[in-house]
Design a binder for these strands. Structure first.
Lengths: 192, 192
DNA sequence: GAAGGGGTGCGGCAGTTTGCCTCGTTCTGC
DNA sequence: GCAGAACGAGGCAAACTGCCGCACCCCTTC
């Protein structure tokens, strides 16, 4: 039995991920922000792995690595993030993270990333052949999110015409299969 | 005076980079492949930094990290790669690399990356809202690279038609082209 | 040498998408 | 009530895409 701590501010996504991981025989504890994570840490007796969303609203997942490793030195820490940034990946690794993944990551991805030996680059990559369409769609969602759902500004940031963004969004009102775990909420009431 | 070891299989690019770094007051030693690097290592008395191209033909820059650090434990190792992958960045860091950059990188980029503290990098991700076009282009290059330049397979992996990939590639200055001379010029397709 | 098999480059065509312009409608703050 | 900012939508020319075919090249295998 693996004990895993999941820190994810999107409660819907957190619950979905928790359930999915449970089906893989993992005992999952969930926290939704930095302070809660620190509190939970004190209550745990054992921790084998931690999965941290890097973007926790006001908090930063990177800052949780140290406290976690301090309490559970052997714990494997996996960072998750919407934007895969190489600089962030390097920073996370320097701080002691075991691996670094970009969303959307399936439970399988997560478990593999935790189990893998990250110093050999073979494992993680080849099983991620994102189609161009999917990549675009996710980037659009992210950008839209970053602009509080403002289509005009998002389109501008993306370098495409507002009308085009409008049309694209309309073509795929519901999230694609891949997006299932990201949740289908396109509500503009986001925090960041 | 900083002593730097540059390992880059493209001899032209290596020379350009060497000259550029020299102008910044750096003493540069150059090697073009793995074995040569190992040989050079034995001849050096001091080494402050190493810049490794990850893709050294048959050799892999990652495998040079250990020998370098073994001989010069305090040496700062910077990995360079054409198409950066997060997995590779994590792997490099786990192996002791100080930082990881994607080409094209200017001498300034290199020096900054070597000087920076990569773990304290304020990692609020959305620093660079990439345009859709740029994102696509990078993904295409990455995929192409992962398939050894095989257009047919890359197109398949990307989920687009081979003819479409072909046409897209033709429309832009080839990456391998401008990499070769990226020494002082800015990238042609600088979208915001 | 003669077939394959896989890959590339390219022309063409019909259907789709995009860029751009325009209009009408909300919603908000002054 | 009005200006400013967004949104949704229609329309059209231009660009792009998928798809088919064809010629050529390089290898391997008869």
């Amino acid at each position: 039995m693996t004990n895993l701590l999941l820190v994810e501010d999107d409660e819907l996504l957190a619950e979905q991920t928790r359930q999915a991981l449970s089906r893989h025989g993992v005992q999952v504890t969930v926290a939704h922000n930095g302070p809660a994570t620190l509190a939970v840490l004190q209550q745990l007796n054992q921790l084998d792995a931690a999965v941290l969303d890097q973007n926790l609203g006001p908090d930063n997942g990177l800052d949780l690595i140290a406290p976690i490793l301090e309490r559970f030195p052997g714990c494997r820490v996996l960072l998750l993030t919407g934007y895969g940034s190489i600089a962030a990946a390097v920073a996370a690794t320097h701080r002691g993270a075991h691996n670094y993944l970009t969303k959307p990551a399936t439970p399988r991805d997560i478990l593999e990333a935790l189990a893998a030996d990250p110093s050999s680059l073979a494992p993680a990559l080849p099983q991620t052949p994102p189609s161009l369409q999917r990549l675009e769609w996710e980037h659009i969602q992210r950008t839209l999110d970053a602009h509080d759902g403002n289509i005009s500004r998002a389109a501008d940031a993306l370098g495409i015409h507002r009308r085009t963004l409008q049309r694209r969004l309309k073509k795929r009102p519901s999230a694609s299969e891949y997006q299932r775990e990201k949740g289908q909420q396109t509500t503009p009431d986001n925090d960041n």
